[in-house]
Amino acid sequence: MWCDVWDYGISPGRSIGEQALADLQQRATAEGVALRVGVVLEHDGAVLLLAREEYSAGPRPLNLPGTTVRPGEPLADAVARAVLEETGLRVVDIVRHLGNFDYLDNAGKPVRREHFAVEVAAAGPIRLSNYAGYRWIPLDTDPPVTSSIRHILSAYRAGEPTQPR
């Protein structure tokens, strides 16, 4: 399947397996939750985290690249689109599923954020669109992220998916 982002054709490999992606998407639909994706990109033992503008209450936690899955959009396309739109990097393979967490959006509607480890064609240059900055944070540190993202990064380090939360 192809999706066009900024006039680039994207069709990443799916080491994770096409059926695994379809099953995750079907489960979210059956459970009536909106679907988002989060992506872990590693380079030289560090993970890419994105920073929003700071605000008066102090620095915000860092984020993984991610996006909302559009109606009818396959998960593989959403993963590739998220990385390309937010970082300018091209996903070449979706390696594995890292788990998910559910939450309520600002309108009180249920959302599920599925997380994936990916390989990219190159680790740079980074071209941000929605963020003020980025940092490559070593995986062996305790990054300034939410507890849910910390759980996903722990699963990534352990080489296993997390259990749904």
Results as ranks from 00 to 15, higher is better:
155 A>K: 10
26 Q>R: 14
53 E>A: 11
11 S>F: 10
71 P>Q: 13
86 E>I: 00
6 W>G: 15
92 V>C: 11
85 E>F: 04
46 A>Q: 13
43 H>S: 14
4 D>R: 13
53 E>W: 01
18 E>S: 14
88 G>N: 06
161 P>N: 10
5 V>L: 10
22 A>Y: 06
22 A>G: 02
144 P>D: 02
48 L>C: 08
163 Q>N: 13
46 A>H: 11
24 L>K: 13
105 D>K: 01
160 E>P: 00
127 R>V: 14
132 A>Y: 01
28 A>F: 03
56 S>M: 07
64 L>K: 00
128 L>K: 00
156 Y>N: 05
23 D>R: 12
83 V>C: 04
69 V>E: 01
15 S>K: 03
144 P>E: 02
8 Y>S: 06
115 H>E: 07
31 E>F: 08
16 I>K: 04
92 V>M: 12
57 A>R: 06
127 R>E: 12
35 L>R: 06
71 P>S: 14
114 E>P: 11
66 G>N: 07
119 E>M: 10
27 R>V: 03
91 V>L: 10
142 D>H: 08
103 Y>N: 03
158 A>G: 09
32 G>H: 06
51 A>Q: 04
10 I>K: 01
23 D>I: 05
127 R>D: 06
126 I>R: 01
120 V>I: 12
11 S>L: 14
148 S>Y: 01
114 E>T: 09
139 L>I: 11
125 P>K: 09
96 R>G: 05
80 A>S: 07
106 N>P: 00
67 T>F: 00
32 G>L: 05
164 P>H: 08
104 L>G: 00
44 D>L: 10
92 V>T: 15
37 V>Y: 00
165 R>M: 10
136 W>K: 02
136 W>Y: 06
114 E>N: 11
101 F>T: 11
158 A>S: 12
133 G>R: 09
10 I>W: 00
147 S>T: 08
18 E>T: 14
6 W>S: 15
87 T>M: 07
119 E>I: 01
50 L>E: 03
160 E>K: 14
164 P>T: 08
132 A>Q: 06
155 A>D: 10
12 P>T: 10
100 N>F: 02
106 N>C: 04
16 I>P: 04
49 L>I: 07
50 L>D: 04
129 S>T: 11
141 T>R: 10
33 V>F: 04
14 R>F: 04
148 S>H: 06
125 P>A: 13
157 R>K: 14
94 I>L: 12
54 E>D: 15
150 R>M: 05
163 Q>C: 08
162 T>Q: 14
7 D>C: 07
35 L>P: 09
76 A>S: 15
121 A>P: 02
86 E>A: 00
131 Y>W: 15
19 Q>A: 15
8 Y>W: 09
157 R>Q: 12
163 Q>S: 12
98 L>T: 11
81 R>H: 09
165 R>L: 12
95 V>F: 07
45 G>P: 01
25 Q>C: 05
13 G>W: 09
122 A>D: 14
6 W>V: 06
62 L>K: 05
40 V>W: 01
112 R>S: 09
45 G>N: 12
63 N>D: 09
61 P>L: 05
119 E>G: 03
51 A>C: 01
133 G>C: 02
7 D>A: 13
74 P>G: 14
25 Q>K: 13
30 A>E: 15
54 E>S: 09
119 E>N: 09
